[in-house]
Computed example of a mutant assay.
Amino acid sequence: MAAARRAEVRLPPLVAYEGEELEPDGDYDGVRFEAVDLSDQSGPGARFMDCALDGCALDRTELTRSRFIDSVLTGVRGVGTDLSGASLRDVEIVDARLGGVQLHGAVLERVLVRGGKVDYLNLRKARLKDVVFEGCVLSEPDFGGAHLVRVEFRDCVLKRADFSAVRMESVDLRTVAELDIARGVEQLAGAVISPSQLMELAPAFAARIGVRVEA
């Protein structure tokens, strides 16, 4: 099992964000967004490099095809944030409270998601490489058709996860605190689970291959 390479973000001195609205294809370099309300704003194609977003509201914020590079998002919150087709590289997301985040078709490389809770995370057909989910709660995440390479779920909760048509390479599920798979249990080839998790998933495995278990 190849371990994920963790994001190591070292931010330079930052300047405070003084704009009023995000700009499409905007270029934000070395900027700190401190408790900024970005709700209902639109910045498709924007680039955030060496940035910090602290306590920002992201309700219905449109950031399709945006790029986050060497950045840290701490305590962000919101519902319906659209990051479809976005690219995240060397990014830390800490203590986020998000719901209905659209990350379908996105590319995540060397990303750490630590703490917080994300409901209805849409990662359909996304590509995840060297991604770590640590100490967070993922409620009904959708990984349908995604490609996961060196992805670790550490001390986190997975509720009603959808792994339909997913491809996995070196995916570590052994320390998941609660592993609840709604769909796609047969797609776990390429993942490693613990003996206790195997016992818990045995009925689902048996059902998928048509085996009846009777006393």
Rank of each mutant, 00 (worst) to 15 (best):
A161I: 07
V111R: 02
V31N: 02
G99A: 04
A126F: 00
R110A: 02
D155F: 00
E92M: 05
L148D: 00
E152Y: 02
F68D: 02
R154Q: 10
E34N: 08
E62Q: 06
G99T: 00
F143N: 04
S139P: 01
V76T: 06
R47I: 14
L38H: 15
V131Q: 09
R160N: 07
R97K: 09
F48G: 15
V111F: 00
F48L: 11
G135Y: 00
T64I: 13
L73P: 08
Q102Y: 15
R77L: 00
L121K: 10
L53K: 09
V76E: 11
V111T: 08
R160P: 11
T64P: 03
D25L: 07
F143M: 15
V31A: 04
D90V: 01
G45C: 14
G144S: 11
V118H: 04
A46Q: 15
A165D: 05
R167A: 12
L103W: 07
V101T: 07
S42P: 12
D54R: 14
C51A: 09
M49P: 02
A146W: 03
D162K: 14
L123K: 02
R77N: 05
L58D: 08
L98F: 06
E92Q: 13
V132K: 13
G116K: 07
Y120E: 09
A165R: 13
F133G: 06
D142R: 06
F33N: 00
S39M: 02
L53G: 05
V151Q: 05
A35T: 03
E34F: 08
G145T: 12
S87G: 10
T81I: 11
R150H: 04
M49E: 08
L121T: 11
G144W: 01
R60K: 14
L88Y: 01
G115R: 10
R167S: 13
M168N: 10
T64Q: 14
I93D: 02
G99P: 02
D70F: 01
D54I: 06
L83D: 09
L73W: 07
L88E: 04
S39R: 11
C136N: 08
G144F: 00
H104M: 07
